[in-house]
Amino acid sequence: MSLTDQLVQYLVTGVSIGVVYGVVGLGLTIIYNATGIINFAQGEFVMLGGMGAVALVNVGLPLPVAVAVAVAVVTGVGLAVERLAIRPLPATSIMTLIIATIGVSLVLKGGAKLLWGREAVILPPFSGTQPVRIGTAGIDPQRLWVMAVAVLSVIGVQSFFRYTLTGKAMQACAINRAAAQLVGININRMVSLSFALSAVVAALAGVVLTPVTMMRYSQGTTFTLTGFLAAVVGGLGNSLGAVVGGIMLGLLESLAGGFIDPLTGGMVSSGYNKAIALAVALLILWLRPQGLLGRQKKEAL
């Protein structure tokens, strides 16, 4: 296997894992844009989508129906989370919001554990297991489904914000809540909608991911953390940025994994690849706090 062949495989791998970070980050961005909340339960939405679909397939529903129902249920969960845990909050400091959503993430995780147990579960692949070849590199066909969902999500979310009245209203909420309210936008409804939309994106991602990566009740935290970093690196609040940030993190991780230990003569083992990707991400943020695609926000006085 030549170095070029390896490089191609690393790039393919990097993109395919980065897209997952990105799509979770995209979901985070939707809520952040409407509310300024970092939803630490976002990863749990992904996990619920995947595990829910498996549970429904196991009771005998055909796959497409199971997928649809799972996404609908997670959307309901998203709405319920907003209604039951976010709206009643007496104060909305950043810290309070982070803590409330962490609480929600624990409840959802604990619920999944109680309901479906601790073992990993899996869905049948949507279109076989025959790997798709790119030169000598290979990619699981299911990964293409994941990428398709990511691309569709970005396009969908971008056009929603850009071309629909509701989308514009939602953005208005984020920019200036009081002003939005004055022009007659129902803030509560916008917030609810952002949770629902975000849950749809997350659940879809969870469903298409499960055949390649399996799903476990405890996996949500990892999704949230990586998605959060992707969103932040891309520029919090920028939906395209989240996906770009995610792909960048994925590439860093896979390239570091592939090359760090030959480059350092075995001094630094490839087990550090995630730490390296993360350190680079933090460095970027340190130098450019608004993220890669984010715009510098003016400080409100």
């Binding site: 845990a85 609480g103 929600v104 993430s105 624990l106 409840v107 604990g110 109680l114």
Partner: peptide, 23 residues
């Protein structure tokens, strides 16, 4: 036995409830 699996859910509920009702 099933009570042992309640820990995560209960901690989460305590956290959320406290932020809402007893800030």
């Amino acid at each position: 036995p099933w009570v042992a699996d309640l820990d995560v859910i209960l901690f989460g509920a305590v956290l959320t409830a406290v932020v809402i009702f007893l800030p």
